[in-house]
Design a protein around this nucleic acid. Structure first.
Lengths: 167, 167
DNA sequence: TTTAATGCAAACGATTTGCAGCGAA
DNA sequence: TTCGCTGCAAATCGTTTGCATTAAA
């Protein structure tokens, strides 16, 4: 069961997202279709990391019939509208993975290469250094992808035990 | 025309790579085939960033007839052998892009989202912070992918001029 | 001799595209 | 009424796999 405050947060994110989408649509002379709203609703039902296939699943579960094609065609708009980000993470080779953007807050990822667990973190000092680096090479930084990959505590522990058992 | 010192560097990298591959093959009870050497030779003929298709092209250009399938099957080995890295960069959605590893030196990427130019950089301070972050969450850091995306100087300049012309 | 490696063709799976019909503005 | 949007089916395209054959060790 979803906790009340979480439910509220999801609802708020969804409301904000719809708002943004409307602005985006208006600003670009596009059309606000029920399919688009259905997609946004599904997206914000999902955990932060999701694929197009996940979105389609939720859409169907909610009784929607928006086609896969339409979802694909709209992901690009959601990105441009600032609702979601494309994620480049370690084990996302086949499908493109996306994540919500919550009130514009930025974070990076720490991925466990054993169990796949993903931790999100924000480290201001790293951001500052990145700006310095970009400036040093004459670039104006627009965005970045940082994926730290390693072995998480539990997995290290497990591997330690396994090694012990073996010997 | 390739400068002498560059040619020498390429040759050295290739020699070292072959060495490594032999070690890897031996250590894993695999076989050292002419196809594998052909692939490594092609890989080190290429610019640092390349795809499987690029490798195939060079192989063919050099008169080799190693199949695409075999190249695919061997890229994984080259990665494990420490000869190349998989790269996760901004505009590499469709194909997997790889890069050479030169004497184990590490670097990150700064990509221009307009012209696609890629600058490699190494920033020790960022690496240190990454270790801190990983440690904070109980992770043992194995590797990371950092891709800074922005607009490079020339592209900003060009856009500035275009805007002027328009107005 | 053993069995990993190769090449070909077929399979796959994610994403894209052509096109006819639909509907938001 | 216009023209962007949708759905379907077919097309793409990078990558993987099954299988018979070849060759390294």
């Amino acid at each position: 069961m979803v906790l009340p405050q979480v439910a509220r947060a999801i609802r708020n994110d969804f409301q904000q997202a719809v708002e943004r989408l409307r602005d985006y649509v208006r600003a670009n002379n596009l059309r606000y279709t029920p399919e688009r709203e259905e997609i946004v609703r599904a997206v914000f039902e999902l955990e932060t990391h999701f694929s197009v296939a996940h979105v389609a699943e939720i859409v169907r579960r909610q009784g929607g019939k928006t086609s896969l094609t339409t979802i694909y065609r709209n992901m690009e708009h959601l990105v441009r509208a600032g609702l979601v980000n494309e994620v480049k993470c370690g084990r996302c080779t086949d499908e493109q993975i996306y994540e919500h953007i919550h009130q514009d807050q930025h974070h990076d990822h720490l991925t466990c290469i054993r169990c796949g667990r993903v931790v999100e973190f924000a480290e201001e000092a790293i951001e500052v250094l990145q700006d310095h680096v970009a400036a040093k090479y004459g670039f104006e930084l627009v965005r970045h992808h940082l994926d730290l990959q390693g072995v998480c505590g539990p997995c290290r522990e497990r591997e330690r035990r396994e090694k012990e058992t073996r010997s």
